[in-house]
Design a protein around this nucleic acid. Sequence first.
DNA 1: GTATTACGATACTACACGTTATCGAAAAAA
DNA 2: TTTTTTCGATAACGTGTAGTATCGTAATAC
Lengths: 205, 205
Amino acid sequence: MHAPNTTEQESPRPRGRPRREAARDEIVEATLALLADRGFQATTMDAIAARASVGKTTIYRRWDSKEELIADALGELRTEPSTSAATDLRAVLLEYLHDQERELADPLVGRLLPAILGELQTNPGFASAWEDRVVRPRRHAIVDVLSEALERGELRDGADPDVIADLLLGAPLLRLLFPVGLPAVPAHYAEQQLEAIWDGIAPVA
Amino acid sequence: MHAPNTTEQESPRPRGRPRREAARDEIVEATLALLADRGFQATTMDAIAARASVGKTTIYRRWDSKEELIADALGELRTEPSTSAATDLRAVLLEYLHDQERELADPLVGRLLPAILGELQTNPGFASAWEDRVVRPRRHAIVDVLSEALERGELRDGADPDVIADLLLGAPLLRLLFPVGLPAVPAHYAEQQLEAIWDGIAPVA
DNA sequence: GTATTACGATACTACACGTTATCGAAAAAA
DNA sequence: TTTTTTCGATAACGTGTAGTATCGTAATAC
């Protein structure tokens, strides 16, 4: 929007008091924290400012609207796909499931998700930001693993990587979103998941 | 709240102009329709009244608050568990999956779900209403089938009905909530799901 | 020093929306 | 006809909140 140095050019230092750059991250962090443990409604600009110990002026000097702030904040959720060292497909999948469950168990992600799901419906801007930055990377990570395994013959002929990804990712999500008295993610859940699927996707022996 | 006839007693007809009973269903229907295709935020009392061609007075004479109206409306989503005639476990599961997918594909349910997910987080009243009236019946239907099958030896020893239910129900949900360019529910999706699982849960031959 | 910009705090504006109140008309019982 | 209750429409009230304006202060360049 502003930012006079369009490239990496060293801007010669503007005139007045410089912005406190750290404030940006503090505001983003406060936004995510509020979304996670107070929900979407309670995440007001006043609440964000208070939690970040910052004046609203400081927020609006960096973002044009609440919408843009939240979209940016969601972008910070990117996680690196824990490059697994395992070679055995089953071990790789297991490790991946453990990563997913650990991430869902994290209050930040686990509670953020339901909080913004409704917003994704009606807000195309959110939807694409969320999809590009959060959903797609995670899904691609496992779909790629499965696709390569299929080509190497480590999956049953005719198996569909997308469907298998749905099964693996959808199950813990269901538990998270609809806790019907069941433990959120019990011990050895990943193992149980894989156990129930493996013989259906492994090559016929 | 009111309703003078606590039992089925024929009340002798009150004095003034009688209420138009059909209005209740029209209001409920308008509420669900708005939630589904406009989202939670756009579902205001004015919008509901307008869509139902009704005055707000008429709504507030039947419900004490918007919250109670929506809770009641969600209750209308109850579906009878299509009592399957099939006896073969795999056929029963397949039929169940088809039912689920048909329901999720229904714009009303399929779009209602994401619209209220956020609300479930912060609103305990909604959460329990939704859970009791929508989630629990559907989940129990399939968990019961699986549990009985397990007892009859039609499932592999050590299989966990809850985990299998997660896999079967979670996969289409994932597609619905996070459409990453994939078709919502492609043809033969249920068959593919079951194919990927069956050999992992069937008894060892 | 002066000028300029950022800072946090607070007040203010504008609007959306749940809820209540008020209206004249309609539908029933007495 | 009179009384009672519902009806749809509309206005009004109260609150919450996004966004703006203002103020005194701090940090930097000149």
